[in-house]
């Protein structure tokens, strides 16, 4: 018994000796928190694909930032947000459906970034942009992550009711005189900011999971937004912390293990959720069937 406890304690404590790991753990927990909060809105608004688009569209911004020597967050935000404006513009001017427009724009931005990476001499590792590198994150990158994340949290916290109303019923928001156009762009810019926050930790491929999965998991577990927010944060932060441990102990990709854990949480919720889970549905069907049988069979 003591042995088990000691082993468990060592499992937790050992990585904490290393400064870079302590740092990786709290940075990814912070990123997990920011992504979790936004993921609730992304899930409810149906903007998962938009998150995918923004995350890919930031690549040219990152490359140009490094080339010009400005903070990567500035370029990434400009291109991420620019892509969403482009998507909105093209959608309003053509007869195309939104998913087609998103598909065209984000791959275009991404490809442009790819071309730039190979042409502009820099020390950017494309692999790190794609899959994140929280273990090797630099002090400057952490500062940018913190600024972008704090800004996101502040905006969402202050405007959370309006943003929720905008997701739920934009027509009513308009009918009571709120500026829905501004809410649309507010939500898009915090989406871009969140992606900037998660860029160094999770990478642009994995960030989509962090922007969708926690919210989707929580949505299966509750009917109240406040609870959804808390469940989402709990799932995301614990996946980020545990994932970083796993990546140390088993020597695997950090972003990868975080997302695998998030996905495991999702599957557990999907199967075992008290009201919307597969088991609960099966159970309810059986109860109904039994009641029906009892009603139809003669006494």
């Amino acid at each position: 018994m003591i042995d088990v406890l000691t082993t468990a304690w060592n499992w937790i404590a050992e990585p904490l000796q290393y400064g870079f790991l302590r740092q990786a753990i709290w940075v990814s927990a912070f990123v997990g928190l920011v992504c979790a909060v936004l993921s609730c809105y992304v899930t409810l608004k149906g903007w998962s694909l938009m998150g995918d688009a923004v995350s890919h569209a930031v690549v040219p911004g990152v490359v140009i930032s490094y080339a010009l020597g400005i903070p990567f967050a500035v370029g990434a935000f400009a291109f991420g947000f620019g892509a969403t404006v482009a998507i909105g513009y093209i959608k309003s001017k053509t007869r195309l459906k939104e998913d087609a427009v998103i598909g065209v724009v984000f791959t275009g931005f991404f490809a442009f970034g790819l071309v730039l990476v190979t042409k502009i001499p820099s020390n950017i590792d494309l692999f790190h942009i794609l899959f994140g590198n929280v273990l090797g994150i630099s002090r400057q990158d952490i500062i940018q992550t913190l600024i972008a994340g704090t800004l996101t949290l502040a905006v969402i916290l202050l405007r959370r009711k309006d943003l929720l109303l905008f997701c739920f019923d934009p027509n009513h928001a308009k009918a009571i005189g709120l500026n829905t156009q501004m809410m649309y762009y507010t939500l898009l810019s915090v989406l871009a900011l969140t992606i900037v926050t998660a860029l160094q930790t999770a990478g642009i491929i994995m960030v989509v999971a962090m922007l969708v999965t926690p919210g989707a998991t929580a949505y299966l577990l509750t009917d109240r937004f406040d609870r959804m927010l808390m469940i989402s944060v709990a799932a995301s932060v614990s996946a980020c912390v545990l994932g970083t441990y796993f990546s140390y102990h088993f020597d695997v990709s950090t972003g990868g293990s975080i997302v695998v854990l998030l996905t495991v949480f999702f599957v557990l919720a999907m199967v075992f959720a008290p009201k919307y889970g597969l088991f609960a549905q099966r159970f309810r069907q059986r109860v109904y069937k039994k009641q029906l049988d009892e009603m139809s069979s003669p006494p």
Partner: peptide
């Protein structure tokens, strides 16, 4: 209306007061 949205009846009616 998205009837699966996680809001209560009270919260919806309260939205009428936001303005």
């Amino acid at each position: 209306v998205d009837w699966n949205f996680p809001v209560s009846v009270f919260e919806v009616v309260m939205m009428g007061r936001y303005g």
